[in-house]
Design a binder for these strands. Structure first.
Lengths: 348, 348
DNA sequence: ACTCGTTTTTGTAACGTTTCAATCAGGCTC
DNA sequence: GAGCCTGATTGAAACGTTACAAAAACGAGT
């Protein structure tokens, strides 16, 4: 494979000149530059990223580690980040931790040997001390997405989770629901805790009481959500509407509903966080709180670039993005509502 | 950041020894190795991939370029490839071409500067001469996935597309359908052509005639599929069942069906290629020809590894994987079938 | 004790770039 | 025509590793 020396020889210039046309093109006279470029073309020369990264002390690589690339949220995120990074001349190294923190840590080590220039991390699970030190060892700027880790001083891009929880719940209340189930993630995660807070706030605002029996932790996963939903449906007084706080759990909930032969929204209403690309194509047509995923990816990359360029310094900035309510047919009036009007208070 | 020299100094050995414990651990005595490892630990030393790739003439990087990471087929593929690669000590560089061949070519150039050791490519669109030469310039083994490119002598892993087309169609025929629409990709792509061939073969085997008016090219994309489906439904004698030859088009078709207020399978039956993770959770519960995606990814990586190890040489091998039929409720008997029995031939 | 194989260890030259100080070639000014 | 300035070009020293040949250490066999 052709090297810079070969190009220099063919164009009859020094290697330094070739390097100059590659990097600071304006420092070399037009005629020479043209000659050099012709030589490169002829030899189909491609610079060696390794050598370059060795000499300059940067690799042009940005790491992106996500929990599950199979989740549309993360694949969209990757797409957005990759596009934005390409525009800035960076290459994105995607790491999929499969939601296992050991894998994630292995990836962080790998990224260190690659000498990435910066990292965008969608942390899986809670902060471990171990991970914090791995991040520090990276010695590069880090931007968190989706889940913030307070106290480490990193930049972050997150959804306004409280508001997301509030709006979803409010929407169900507006349809007339009074018993609203919540299928949530573990409340040790800030994300889940805030969504729960929004849910409670909306209940409070509507003068409804909070019933702990209606909220379940399904770990942000599909299978447990299905199970949790089954339990909620088996309650003596089951909820008439469900709010699931991420896309996987929304699917799990829909599955449980379908398995019991219930129709949506006739028998039960449903709203989730994260819109899904096929949501309008199938039944129930899922209503959702959409996250501006692309914008989040772009914002995260922009923060990183500003850190790298030195135009941003000091303690971590957190960018809060606003959710967007997408109403489709999975939310409707509760069946009870209609009949309850003319029904006596206690029928046992 | 600590270098190999620092480690050597601290452990009081030569740099060569440090390098040896890193690479060929058995060539160095246990006690020294321990000392060196302790020093590495203390300095939290991490080798520099760039320098390494410069000196050894390999980077430990494998490129994977796909058309659309947002498509579950490709995100599953990535997951499988990454897992398998990690087990062999390789890191996967994912490139998302967004189905645009210019992006794909830019990515191939990028991968060349990264000096990847091998490439797994799910080619988007048809073979261009330009791309063929870019691939050749890479000077590394290439394995094609999903779509083969004949004549270039590369290894490939593909689905038995003819059989997939055959089985899907056969299934619909078995339900009693006689007018089966085909929403396919462009038949310049081998994949699409073979699926079409399987479709025709199944019709023939059942003594049904092939009606070109019932087949549409929707470019393997959702939006055009929705459009194509609308056209099929507007036909004077619309099909009673549809076979869509990939997941995006299946969604598009489902959307068109839903938009017209038709029920599935009561009004129309539906089967697609590529199973979807949420297929059982929503209605219609989509039947599908599932591709063994993980196995395909693993097979592709295995081929690549064998090429790299030199245990496989000579002309390209093509591995053909078998599809698996997953029947859910989106296939049923045609409505016409029931009433047509007692109905006169022409009712206008 | 001495020579020979083995096994460990080491010095050092690459690998392909960039950087930086140094040289060179013109063109101005006086 | 000498002196200077400016901008283009270049030589050579890194950057952190590995590979290879050479040196050292170690036993074993005489």
């Amino acid at each position: 494979m052709a090297t810079i020396r070969d190009v220099a020889r063919l164009a009859d210039v020094s290697v330094a000149t070739v390097s100059n046309v590659l990097n600071s093109a304006d420092r070399v006279s037009p005629e020479l530059a043209a000659r050099v470029r012709a030589a490169m073309e002829k030899l189909s020369f491609t610079p060696h990223a390794g050598a370059r990264s060795l000499r300059k002390r940067s690799s042009g690589l940005i790491g992106l580690v996500v929990g599950d690339i199979t989740n549309p949220f993360f694949s969209d995120l990757f797409e957005a980040v990759e596009d934005a990074a390409a525009a800035c001349g960076y290459l994105v190294l995607l790491c999929n931790s499969n939601e296992r923190s050991e894998r994630e840590e292995a990836h962080l080590r790998m990224l260190r040997t690659q000498r990435i220039d910066g990292l965008i991390l969608a942390p899986t699970g809670a902060v471990s001390m171990n991970r914090a030190s791995l991040l520090a060892q990276l010695e590069v700027p880090v931007v968190l997405v989706d889940r913030a880790m307070e106290g480490l001083g990193y930049d972050a891009v997150v959804l306004d989770n409280r508001r997301a929880g509030f709006e979803a719940t409010q929407q169900l209340i507006a349809c007339g629901h009074r018993r609203i189930g919540l299928v949530n993630g573990p409340d040790v995660l800030r994300t889940a805790a805030e969504r729960l807070a929004g849910y409670r706030e909306a209940l409070l605002a509507a003068g409804l009481s909070f019933d702990p029996a209606l909220v379940r932790d399904a770990g942000f996963r599909q299978q447990p959500a299905e199970q949790a939903m089954a339990e909620l449906l088996a309650l003596p007084e089951p909820p008439t509407a469900i709010f699931a706080t991420n896309n996987l759990m929304t699917i799990g909930v829909a599955k449980a509903v379908a398995d019991r032969g219930l129709a949506c929204p006739q028998d039960i209403s449903l709203i989730g966080i994260d819109d899904l690309p096929w949501a309008a194509a199938v039944s129930p047509q899922l209503s959702a709180i959409a996250q501006p995923v692309r914008a989040m990816g772009e914002a995260a990359l922009a923060l990183l670039i500003r850190r790298l360029a030195g135009t941003l310094s000091g303690p971590g900035t957190t960018i809060v993005m606003e959710p967007r309510l997408v109403i489709r047919r999975s939310c409707g009036a509760p069946a009870q509502e209609l009949s309850a009007a003319g029904k006596p208070a206690h029928v046992d």
